[in-house]
Design a protein around this nucleic acid. Sequence first.
DNA 1: TGTTGCAATAAGTAAGACTATTGTGCGACG
DNA 2: CGTCGCACAATAGTCTTACTTATTGCAACA
Lengths: 231, 231
Amino acid sequence: MADRTHRTLLDALGERIAAGELAAGTVLTLAGIEAEYSVSRSVVREAVRVLEAMGLVEPRRRVGVTVRQRIHWHALDPRLIRWRLAGASRNQQIVALTELRLAIEPTAARFAATRAGADEREGILRLARRLDELGQAGAGATDEYLRVDVAFHQEILAASGNLMLAAISEPISEALSGRHALGLTPADPTPESLHDHLATAAAIARGDSAAAESASRSALEGILDEVRRLL
Amino acid sequence: MADRTHRTLLDALGERIAAGELAAGTVLTLAGIEAEYSVSRSVVREAVRVLEAMGLVEPRRRVGVTVRQRIHWHALDPRLIRWRLAGASRNQQIVALTELRLAIEPTAARFAATRAGADEREGILRLARRLDELGQAGAGATDEYLRVDVAFHQEILAASGNLMLAAISEPISEALSGRHALGLTPADPTPESLHDHLATAAAIARGDSAAAESASRSALEGILDEVRRLL
DNA sequence: TGTTGCAATAAGTAAGACTATTGTGCGACG
DNA sequence: CGTCGCACAATAGTCTTACTTATTGCAACA
């Protein structure tokens, strides 16, 4: 066998569960999976262990591997988020991720304003300015805009000094990319949006946490409105 | 071997990495772990797969299993949070979790106000009233207060209708328990705190999302202040 | 009807063989 | 002396098999 069997099987099972094709309560067996995917027991066991760690399944002796209810899923796991973005509930997932951003980013901006290092402040400001340039130029739907936008938000989350807030970064980036891929990003971002981004960056740069939080919140409210309107 | 070798090994390695005893860049080998813990290769492989899924390590052929930098950790994984709470950085972790709550809970309360079912609204209100009773009676440091407090926040997160917001529930509960275990919960909660909790529940019950968000935020700001003061 | 015990089932652990990948060092060649 | 390429060795990946242990369901019996 090649070398990606683990990853392949894990993604296959994960996507099927995330999509609901394998509904809660469904019982699999290691032997069954082994036969269905023609992989060895070791590979099956390792994949199932990872799914178990994500709260997606629960192996029990004499019973098999039971798919668990959604409540138990570690919905913030980047892999699970990817699987959900890959399925039919993609749009719904993008809305949910935007709601998550609305929760996280303003708070992250607030903390970043008091904790960011000099170079981080500098970098955030530079990214915001570039975003503004691109937006004004009608390049809101370009790959470069996406890259800068992703980098902008990542920098803020990283600068928050809170590892858990920063951990949202990866899923958020995927959501942005997903939105972009769906063609939901306008070529001309609204002036309000561009202003909010700039204001967030400026407030962080000068250490004004209240202003950073409120500007970021304003930006996200706008984005959430837009996403909801389009999906 | 008994039956908990997987769990035991996973926790052992996870805690060592979370604590920094196995620093980023440290290279292990499957054979080494196998020998050190006297478990079979299968068990080692499965544990390492789970750690890999959490972003804690990266196995590479001809090299070994390398411990990754913190940036790559899935810091929102409940297991990882537990490991960090178990280590020396416990206090710091509780503060970080409280910051996370400040981000998540007000937003969750806002959405809960528009999305909660009738019985959920009822339940949240009932829990808040019970919390108030207990708080007024000077029972803020009791196990029952903790239980009700945890249930209160869980209900709100669950009622937010966002699976990812709800997924924060488990780690948050652990943080509350941790704070309680450290004796950081006052027997007499401040009147402001009790009022904010009640106001949050009332606003959710009557569907007033703006009031729910702001009352929840006020409650959390108070808690964050207190936690920071004490840790 | 309830309870105890047995047997079947499926996961858990162990061990070993073989494969595939990749970093390193050595040697040949420029 | 340096650089390129190749062979070797180390280590994870996969496969297979054997054995162990927990659990459940059923049947026999009180």
